[in-house]
C-alpha cells in the first residue's frame, strides 16, 4: 500500500540560506500530527514545500502514492490567517464556497448543492447565522473557523493546517480540537503547525519535531521526550522548562 505522505530528501533555501535541510518523512498510517519546533524552524515552509507553494531546492514529495500535482482534490489546506486581506469584498459563505472550486473545475459556478455543503460546514465550526457577513467583521477566531470550514468542504483525505490555533480565543481552540479528533476518527490525516508545547500531548497522536532538519518523528507518546525537545529547541531554557512541565503533565494523564 502506498504511504499517505512521503517526503524524500527535501531541501528548501531562500537566497542560499537553508530553511529546510534534507527532510525525509514518511507517514504510513492515518494520524493527527503536530509539527513542532522553534520560530524559524521551517514549520510553515514544510507544509508549503509539501503543497508545492515554495520551490524545492532538491527532493520530492508524494501524497498517497502520486506526485502532489495529481492529488490536489484529496488535499485540504488552511493557510495562515494573516496571509489574506480580510477587507476583501466577500462574505463568509463566499470564502467557504472556495473550498468547492477545485471539485467544480474551470468555469462552473457553485450552485445550491455547494451552498448547502458550505452551510453545513459552517455549522460544524459553530458559525451558523454568519453566512452573509463580510469577513472583515469577524473576530480573529471566527476568521480562523471560516478557513477551517473552507477546508472541510474540500472533503479531503489529508489536511494541512498552518498555525490554526495562533491568536484565537478558547472557544475556537476547543472547536479546532474537537474537529481534529473528528477528522482523526474518520481516518483522515491532518498535519498541523503548532507552537504551544503544553497542548501537544492532548491534541496530537503523532509528532514531527523540526528545526531546519527533521529532529524526530513518531507517535507522540515516544517522541515527546525531554531529550528530543532539547535537541529541537537548543538551549532555550524557558521553552525547555515549559516542555518539561508538559512532558510530566503528559505522563500523569493516563
Amino acid at each position: 500500500m502506498a504511504s499517505i505522505l512521503d517526503v524524500h530528501d527535501v531541501t528548501v533555501a531562500y537566497h542560499h540560506r537553508p530553511v529546510l535541510w534534507d527532510i525525509d518523512l514518511t507517514l504510513t498510517q492515518p494520524c493527527v500530527a503536530g509539527i513542532v519546533g522553534p520560530n524559524g524552524a521551517g514549520k510553515s515552509t514544510l507544509i508549503k514545500a509539501i503543497l508545492g507553494l515554495v520551490p524545492l531546492a532538491s527532493g520530492q514529495v508524494q501524497i498517497l502514492g502520486e506526485p502532489v500535482s495529481r492529488q490536489r482534490r484529496r488535499i485540504g489546506y488552511v493557510p495562515q490567517r494573516e496571509s489574506v486581506d480580510w477587507d476583501f469584498p466577500v462574505s463568509v459563505l463566499d470564502v467557504v464556497l472556495m473550498g468547492t472550486y477545485g471539485r467544480l473545475g474551470w468555469f462552473r459556478r457553485p450552485g445550491s448543492r455547494e451552498r448547502d455543503q458550505a452551510r453545513r460546514s459552517l455549522a460544524r465550526v459553530g458559525l451558523e447565522g454568519l453566512e452573509d457577513r463580510q469577513i472583515g467583521h469577524l473576530s480573529g477566531g471566527q476568521q480562523q473557523r471560516t478557513f477551517l470550514a473552507r477546508a472541510l468542504v474540500q472533503e479531503a483525505d489529508i489536511y494541512f493546517m498552518d498555525e490554526p490555533m495562533a491568536g484565537v480565543d478558547a472557544a475556537t481552540e476547543a472547536t479546532i480540537f474537537s474537529l481534529l479528533r473528528e477528522l482523526g476518527e474518520q481516518g483522515k490525516t491532518v498535519l498541523v503547525v503548532h507552537h504551544d508545547l503544553r497542548t501537544v500531548t492532548q491534541y496530537f497522536d503523532y509528532l514531527i519535531l523540526l528545526n531546519t532538519r527533521l529532529v524526530a518523528h513518531g507517535p507522540t507518546a515516544t517522541t515527546f521526550t525531554p531529550a528530543h525537545l532539547r535537541t529541537t529547541y537548543g538551549g532555550r531554557l524557558a521553552v525547555l522548562d515549559e516542555a518539561a512541565e508538559a512532558v510530566s503533565a503528559g505522563e500523569r494523564t493516563p
Binding site: K48, L51, G52, L53, S69, R72, R73, I75, Y77, P79, S83, V84, D85, F88, V90, V95, M98, Y101, G102, R150, Q154, F160
Partner: peptide, 13 residues
C-alpha cells in the same frame, strides 16, 4: 479566488 487567496488557489491546483 486567485485575487483573494493566492496560496489556497495554488494548493487547490
Amino acid at each position: 479566488l486567485h485575487t483573494f487567496d493566492h496560496g489556497f488557489a495554488q494548493a487547490q491546483g
